[in-house]
């Protein structure tokens, strides 16, 4: 690991000031489960690291507000997953957290930092000699003609087909969460869907955060869609693995009719992948297994598989249908 300069921030203002002043080769250290991991691999090589774990004011979990759930960026994944309101009223949010990683890592990882988790693409993480435009812009993309079983069906470009690996952001996308940031130019708020960007020609740029900006809060509008929801995650093993396909599904039923639906996919796209066309298939229709399947087909339509991941299209369709059935049983 390259030597770096380490400081502990004592307040959000302190962190913003330090982050803004320190320049582009600076990283914020929250849970460390992505950053420190990638530093050990030599993929991240910051010269400056600002530890924000002391910012206790960012650890809040507040479910008592009338209109929204508020999560401080440094609330830990395990704590949010275990919150009784979240677990009971928003099972998709809770499941997206406890089905990620292991309890050890969830005790460490923050819900703000988790949004910025970087891809698991082996060509990205493996360093030399693999071509990777995300890690080494201009070097190419080894995954395109390589082992792409875990790579994206959606949102890829010639420069990059690496999957966004997170679960939580996928569930947040289904619930139209807002992300509050603080930066050198003051606070701002953006929709979760406006946080991540597709790789395009610049796969090294993964978010719309400006230099020096810090995620401080995640807000989820309270919604009757919460209860009839699930985060359904299909993996190569039963636990402690990244998704082959995952589905955040939420329904608001009126009798047997779907009044409103939310669907987002994980494990198959370069960013959290909300599928509004599939939601439209469901809206106003009586819920049946056949309808759930049609929603799955709509969700996976337009997929662009590579050499080894075509199976994820059918798997995704079935996972969507199953997720909708689980959500339906909860509403």
């Amino acid at each position: 690991m390259q030597p770096f300069d380490y400081v502990r921030a004592t307040s959000v203002a302190d962190a913003v000031r330090a982050f803004g002043a320190a320049g582009p080769d600076t990283r914020l250290l929250a849970g460390g489960t992505t950053l420190y991991d990638l530093m050990k691999l030599g993929v991240e090589t910051p010269a400056h690291v600002i530890d924000v774990n002391g910012l206790r004011e960012l650890e809040t979990i507040d479910t008592s507000q009338p209109d929204e759930l508020v999560f401080g960026a440094l609330a830990r994944m395990s704590d949010v997953a275990a919150d009784p309101v979240i677990a009971g009223e928003y099972p998709a949010l809770a499941e997206s957290l406890w089905r990620a990683a292991s309890q050890q890592l969830r005790n460490m990882a923050s819900v703000g930092g988790n949004l910025l988790q970087r891809t698991r693409c082996a060509y990205f993480r493996g360093g030399e000699p693999f071509a990777c435009n995300k890690r080494a812009p201009g070097s190419g993309c080894a995954a395109q003609e390589g082992i792409d079983r875990g790579h994206a069906l959606f949102g890829g470009s010639e420069a990059c087909i690496a999957v966004y690996p997170g679960d939580w952001a996928v569930a947040l996308a289904a619930f139209e969460a807002q992300v509050d940031v603080e930066g050198p130019h003051g606070p701002r708020s953006l929709a979760i869907e406006a946080l991540h960007v597709e790789p395009g020609r610049t796969p090294d740029v993964e978010t719309t955060l400006a230099p020096g900006e810090i995620i401080v809060r995640i807000r989820v509008p309270k919604t009757p869609l919460g209860r009839a929801s699930t985060y359904h995650k299909i993996r190569d093993r039963e636990s402690y693995a990244f998704a082959l396909v995952s589905v955040a599904a939420a329904l608001r039923m009126e009798g047997d009719m779907v009044a409103e639906a939310r669907l987002a996919l994980g494990g198959v796209a370069t960013r959290p992948w909300r599928v509004r066309a599939a939601e439209a298939v469901l809206r106003g229709q009586p819920f049946t297994p056949a309808l759930a399947r049609r929603a799955g087909e709509a969700a996976l339509s337009g997929a662009r598989p590579g050499r080894m991941n075509a199976f994820k299209v059918e798997l995704g369709i079935r996972a969507v249908a199953d997720a909708l059935s689980i959500a339906r049983q909860r509403g």
Partner: peptide, 17 residues
């Protein structure tokens, strides 16, 4: 909890502190 270390904004590459 506060740090006695101060953030150096220049001087890249840093020496290991």
């Amino acid at each position: 909890m506060s740090s006695s270390a101060t953030l150096r904004t220049g001087g890249h590459p840093p020496t290991p502190g």
